[in-house]
Nucleic acid binder design. Sequence first.
DNA 1: AAGTTGGTGTGAATAATATCACATAATTTT
DNA 2: AAAATTATGTGATATTATTCACACCAACTT
Lengths: 212, 212
Amino acid sequence: MPISKIPDATIKRLSLYNKQLRRLVDENIDIVRSKELADLLSLTSTQVRKDLSYFGKFGRRKKGYDVKLLLSSLCKILGVASDNRIALFGAGNLGRALLGYKGFSERGFCIEAIFDADPEKIGKNFFGKICMPVSDAEKILGEKDIKIAIIAVPDDAVDSVVDIVVRSGVKSILNFTPRRLQVNNDVMVRSVDFTDKLEQLSYFSRHPMDNK
Amino acid sequence: MPISKIPDATIKRLSLYNKQLRRLVDENIDIVRSKELADLLSLTSTQVRKDLSYFGKFGRRKKGYDVKLLLSSLCKILGVASDNRIALFGAGNLGRALLGYKGFSERGFCIEAIFDADPEKIGKNFFGKICMPVSDAEKILGEKDIKIAIIAVPDDAVDSVVDIVVRSGVKSILNFTPRRLQVNNDVMVRSVDFTDKLEQLSYFSRHPMDNK
DNA sequence: AAGTTGGTGTGAATAATATCACATAATTTT
DNA sequence: AAAATTATGTGATATTATTCACACCAACTT
């Protein structure tokens, strides 16, 4: 089964399934049917089954899916272990909020290092982590074998930080700046822009709502 | 031209165009060709033209697009004025980071009111705004005619806050919690989940990269 | 002023994604 | 133990989104 044929849209939904399954585990629910999972996520049962079918057969006819089993399978597929180490660049308002965000650790991601350019911040302790100078990043990322970086620096620092991050061998970047990152196509970037989403909301609030 | 026939994917790209055009204005660039705009956003020129064509004709043959004119047209389409008022629910780490986030005001969004359930926080000043009790929300949202809410409250408070928000007549919600919001389909929700994106990065970092 | 160039705008073709329809297989019912 | 039920897994189909191919036109060129 050529992995590259898996639809992009399916990959994006995998983390939704993953998240919902965690919730079901918390609720001590052992079995879930595709229809139930779909309803919880506003999808169709067919879509859920089709998505999963790209990776194998996880269900039991007539019964549904063993929640824990499916969750652990999805974790394996997504490569989500309990030790996904991340480096954070930028200890401003946003960066510090991300540091304090419990959702990361709950799902196996751990911010292992913080970097900032501001000498004021170097050496300071944020949520138990010491902020380090960006110039140390290359060395430390190598030492700690960190493969994912979060970028939450001011606009004008983006290029130089991305440069360092990529030089350090990072292949995955979560970008919180509104800038589009210029990287080779062996580096995967996912961007989060809050304002984009607000604009979309703004659009829909002004146009006759076709339900969705 | 039935507005409801416009692809969802196009709407999502409108704010990318909007953002890039703002940047071009800052750089004193007056004219942009679809190819240039496309390259800046890693799209194709055809896609840019097609997207715009759903809304009208904005370009000049052989010349390209007048940056300011196109920007103002897009703003009109998106309904982005300079006075999009927002209410923020939740003054925790994330909420406060959003308050300090300059990207909002730069693009015409303004957080007009902050609500929190924690008595400790009520009355406190965050970035020039006084935090108010959630119980006041319905009154104040009506008074200030706020139509967009950002939800950044703890997981267990989500349901009650969403309830109040919807009762107050808000039709657009930007959701920062990992929970899927249960609302009528006349309320539009856009969700931001950082961890989802990290998981996607994790997936791609573990599978043979087909360029993208 | 006729010809050429270089861009937009758009119907038609293709590709990607979601849905349908049903074969299949466990489980329960009779 | 055969029949009925119910949920999965999947090829075929429908829908949605992207790309192609080119008509068209405004600005340059000669």
